[in-house]
Simulated scan of single mutants.
Amino acid sequence: MKAPTRWDAVCTVDDLVPESGIAVWTEDGPVAVFYLPHRLPALFAISHHDPISGANVLARGITGDLKGEPVVASPLYKQHFSLRTGRCLEDESVQVKRYPVLLDGGRVRLEVPCEQRQTSAA
């Protein structure tokens, strides 16, 4: 069974920078949102946390294309992460979380897990 999710507005289309990423905060942690206007889809979202360096830096990476795969290169150690799958191209055992993303009017929305609250029986 899939955990419950919701679509949170995290920024506006005016906040986006073409061919680049921005960092946004979600209840699931920091997320990097990338806008590649010459691609379909044009929006991608992955974790902002680089698992190799341990720093929140992926939104500051350089976007590009490796053999047709849209990627971001980590600004610290230069590993490439697929914007479609989150997999590291240099080490397939490493992966970052990918988030479904959509444009809703002028808002960018991410599908993020809902916080599950436990209720106590009285």
Rank of each mutant, 00 (worst) to 15 (best):
V108R: 05
E69S: 02
C11P: 11
E19Q: 11
L36E: 00
Y99A: 11
L103D: 05
T119W: 14
E69R: 03
S47K: 00
S53R: 00
V57H: 01
L40M: 00
E19D: 12
A59P: 03
V72W: 01
K78N: 12
V101W: 04
L58S: 01
I52R: 00
R117T: 12
V13Y: 09
E111P: 03
V71K: 04
L89N: 15
H49I: 06
V101L: 10
D91V: 09
F44Q: 06
C114T: 14
E19R: 11
V31P: 07
M1F: 08
H49N: 03
G54K: 04
T12R: 14
D65E: 11
G86Y: 04
L89S: 10
V10E: 03
A32V: 07
T119M: 12
R117D: 11
V17M: 10
K2L: 13
P113F: 07
V108W: 05
A23Q: 12
K67S: 10
V108N: 02
F44T: 00
Q95S: 13
P100A: 15
R109N: 01
L103P: 09
S53Y: 03
Q116C: 14
A73T: 08
S20G: 09
V112K: 01
A121V: 14
V10F: 11
P70R: 00
E90N: 12
L83P: 05
N56V: 05
S53C: 00
K67E: 12
L89F: 10
P4W: 11
R109I: 01
D28P: 06
V24M: 09
G64T: 03
D50V: 04
L102I: 14
S120D: 15
P41D: 06
A122E: 11
P100D: 11
A73I: 04
A55Q: 02
Q118Y: 14
L40D: 10
G21R: 08
T12A: 08
V10M: 09
Y99P: 00
Q116K: 09
C11K: 08
A59L: 01
G21Y: 07
P18H: 07
I46G: 02
K2N: 13
P41L: 02
R84Q: 15
L43V: 00
E19M: 14
C88G: 15
W7I: 14
